[in-house]
Amino acid sequence: MSELPAKLVCKSLWKIFGTGAETFLNTPPSPDENALRSAGLIGAVRDINLSVHDGEIFVIMGLSGSGKSTLVRCMSRLIEPTAGQILFDGHDLLSADTRTMVDIRRHKMGMVFQHFALLPHMTVLGNVAFPLEVQGMERGAREVRAREVIELVGLEGREDYYPRELSGGQQQRVGIARSLAVEPELWFLDEPFSALDPLIRREMQDEFLRIQSVLRKTIVFITHDFDEAIRLADRVAIMKDGIIDQIGTPEQLVMQPATDYVAEFTRDVSRAKVLSAGVIMTPISDDTSQHDFAGKVSAATKIIDIAEALKDAAKPFAVIDENNRKIGVLSREDVFDVLVKS
């Protein structure tokens, strides 16, 4: 797989809540959960290693209390990690002084919160422009910029409304617009849609993907909803009790779950929605092979989107890569095997 440059890297990252956490961490080789608990400490984030690539949507998925919020707050140092290293664009974030940190947060990071965290006394415009106001940008300029992002999230016409006059979905659009006002390079979203109704959630996910297709940010997205994770993610990290069980593309998680815990999540997932042609095809080494094809599909196409065509076709499909080269063959049997095996 082609390695994109890493935007953010966490190395052996720890966050332990409670007094005496540091000394505790330094004494035994690697404290396990029971040892921590009996010392009255909470290991919210334990020995995390991961890297977020430039321009990808990296989803951290885990149940409530698994340490997702703590991890994402360590990444921006809203919470000071107990041990480990964080590299942001190759620079050690934990050794940055307060001024640098404020600067990085002001200009390079943005965050969306689960419960929106809108300021009740400000209008939509005021809320969205607030990060710029804090930076000391003058009123005219910041409002121009704020109106741009408000339009981007589809709230034009509501600039003068107050948060309490908006629905939950609209409020979170304001939260998204606000986090984008500063044009961050790294965008954190901590369960941004969890507080919304399922239907609205769906709509917001589409909206989010649309915005991302325009902006191409590097994104760390937190969720407790596995469906949401595989819908949005380029890669997913499955987190449990402060530890990451597996990092991989949705397909990798479904096809090769690393632990029983991960398998548990993926069992009920509709494979056809997750798997793409490129994953289940039979590869062919040279595209000169003489096959009779019913048609061509791109390797990234999800099975569900070609199911209809496959059903009616007597012959297999050719699978092509971005350069229009044939790289494999997809037959009805291939698809059938995968879907039935689950």
Binding site: R105, R106, G110, M111, V134
Partner: peptide, 8 residues
């Protein structure tokens, strides 16, 4: 967190 995140 919001306040800290936007660098207040």
């Amino acid at each position: 967190d919001l306040g800290n995140m936007i660098g207040c």
